[in-house]
Amino acid sequence: MQRIDVLYFAWVRERIGLPRERVETDAATVAGLVAELAAREERYALAFADLASLRVALDQELADFDAPLEGVREVAFFPPMTGG
């Protein structure tokens, strides 16, 4: 069991209704964590319905959904960035 801080930004944060939470998980990859979260409640299922519209960062570095979670302390989910 691994303890991870999960952060949400922009419409992902609004849809889930939380900016961050601590999650205990056995998931080996980001995709595994997403499946666990999506199975929790409707608001999570809605937020994670379309992974193509989401980006993920592991310990503040952009990553892929098949990336391993081993040793990761912070996972963030957000839509494509719109800076500049």
């Binding site: 930004f9 922009a10 419409w11 960062a57 952009l62 963030a76 957000f78 839509p79 494509p80 960035m81 719109t82 800076g83 500049g84």
Partner: peptide
């Protein structure tokens, strides 16, 4: 730097108008 700031720096814009607020799509 401008090209990378647009889509690789973690900022998200929301436009607030008279008829509501909307996240700007990438």
């Amino acid at each position: 730097l401008m090209d990378y700031l647009k889509s690789r720096a973690p900022f998200w814009k929301k436009e607030i108008g008279a008829d509501g607020a909307e996240w700007v799509a990438a």
